[in-house]
Amino acid sequence: MMIIRNKIVSLYTAPLFAVLALASCKKQEYELPTASTNLQNDAIKRTIGPNLVTGTINFAYALAIVPEKGKLSSIEVEASIAGAAGTFLDNNSYYTAGNGADVGVPVGSASVTNGAITKVTFNKDTSAATLRYTYVIPEEARGKTVSFKFTGKSSNGETVTYTMGPYTISTMDIKRLLAVSNNNLAFISIADMAVYNSVQAAANASKIDVVYLFRNLTTSAFNHALVSPGADTSYLPGVTLPAGVNRSTKLRKVFNLQDYNLALLQFGIYIDDLDFQQIDLNDSPNFAINLRAEAGVWAETADGKYKAYIYINSVNAAGTAVISMKRWTVPGK
């Protein structure tokens, strides 16, 4: 009997001990961590979304040292692929004012870029600073990866480094805010990422992929439309195509896909290389009619060389619209 009783008692006492053990953990006093007195650094990437050629990647790099030990002397950034013109390291250290605005305080001389290395030398007594680095993505980085090595130096000879990346550079191209108009600038070339009138279209007949038209019909909702030249003529009422303009582009209507790079609206949606890789437009038609502002079309050119997303920024009932496009080159085509 005693054995059974002991067993049962132990069943209850075990959780009790566990609770006590858990509670005892809380007794330890919290100690403030002791900050390192060495030169310290940190970095964040400030831009999001795909890294487009001619676009930028922004970083904030922070460097600090205990004032008694010395002051900051220089910051340099080395990119694995030299940035395009316009790459710079800001010589201001920013803080946020009460109204939320960024206020810059000059701490060094203007940055000097030499090949892949961009450098700012401090000319003020500075113990802590956060500098912003803007990397303009060069053409030669397309489809490759880029990484960045930040190096901070202080007057007492200490050096710290921080590596960011690697970041994949997109193979996409982007063209923003192209004006199109009914019966005039109506011929859109995905290959050239440009808009032509009928005379120019005749000269570039093999590159015309889409025709913009606006028809205000009473019998159906036609309105703004993007139709490929090779589509059935019922989708191109009253359109006279220049000689040789006959490509059949696959088009798929989309609504509410406000890509941030194209729409420049507040929505954090980005179309990336992966979207183009995965989308299958094989069973799509070659016309898209009744389009509105903030709608768009996925497109694939007749030769299969390009896939694109054409976004409609705005439309006007007078028969004009503003479009933007992202284009991806199909590998091997």
Partner: peptide, 9 residues
């Protein structure tokens, strides 16, 4: 359905 509807999708 409206004129110009993509009937396959």
């Amino acid at each position: 359905v409206m004129f110009g509807t993509d009937l396959k999708n």
